[in-house]
């Protein structure tokens, strides 16, 4: 991995590492889709079609530039071989679309009340736990996961992403399909540089175990 701690170079992973991570996260979101399907009693599909890395300051800028100013975020902290703050992020409008499918199709499309924030927390909890348990399973490691917290944020204040140049964000695009509607969001993992290295060590030993490396 080429990674310049002081500069702004993109942290890069080799193709094998990226593929492995992409596959593991898709395994995770696949499990989450099963759990969500059980709740809605209808088919929910989830996929994570792309994976990339960025610095917190870049993501703050990207969100500032995007058309969505109101965001719904569910954050959980994980600690184990590496420490990560995981954030599931949907534009608030998309979060409402998910919730209206999950809770009540006739829900007025106004704003997230406390009731809906709680439900959003649970949905984030399901998706994030599924991803982390997939990683734990495949890496043969253990994580400690905190309870989820729901945050609203306009893009002008994104306190969850720190802003420390020494931290890196792993970004997964998330597609959620439910009753013919496709809803997009992002899953972000905020990792310190040493945690990123630890994650990659896990990926490498996983690849070695599979005989790929």
């Amino acid at each position: 991995m080429a990674f310049d701690e002081s500069g702004h170079d993109e942290p890069t992973l080799d193709e094998l590492q990226l593929d492995a991570l992409g596959e593991l996260f898709n395994l995770g979101v696949g499990r989450a889709a099963n759990s969500l399907s059980l709740i809605v009693k209808d088919e929910v599909e989830l996929s994570a079609p792309s994976i990339s890395f960025a610095y917190p300051s870049q993501i703050t800028q990207a969100l500032l530039d995007s058309e969505f100013k109101e965001l719904s975020m569910v954050a959980m902290d994980f600690s184990g071989p590496f420490e990560a703050r995981a954030v599931l992020l949907f534009p608030e409008r998309n979060a409402l679309a998910i919730l209206s499918h999950m809770l009540d199709p006739n829900m007025p499309p106004e704003e997230l009340s406390e009731f809906e924030q709680e439900a959003m927390c649970e949905i984030g909890n399901i998706i994030l736990n599924a991803c982390m348990s997939a990683l734990a399973d495949e890496f043969g490691v253990e994580f400690m996961g905190s309870l989820p917290e729901h945050h609203f944020s306009d893009t002008e204040s994104l306190p969850l992403f720190g802003g420390d140049q020494k931290e890196v964000l792993l970004i997964l695009q998330i597609h959620l399909s439910i009753r013919q509607e496709r809803i997009n969001g992002h899953l972000l993992f905020l990792l310190s540089v040493s945690s990123l290295h630890a994650l990659l060590t896990c990926v490498d030993s996983y690849l070695t175990r599979l005989g790929i490396r």
């Binding site: 439900a119 253990e142 996961g145």
Partner: peptide, 22 residues
């Protein structure tokens, strides 16, 4: 789902919330 969450806590040490809405 509750049993699932308990298994996740025991096996992976992950925390979960189950809300009345869902």
């Amino acid at each position: 789902r509750l049993l699932n969450c308990i298994q996740q806590a025991l096996r992976f040490r992950l925390s979960s919330v189950l809300t009345p809405g869902l």
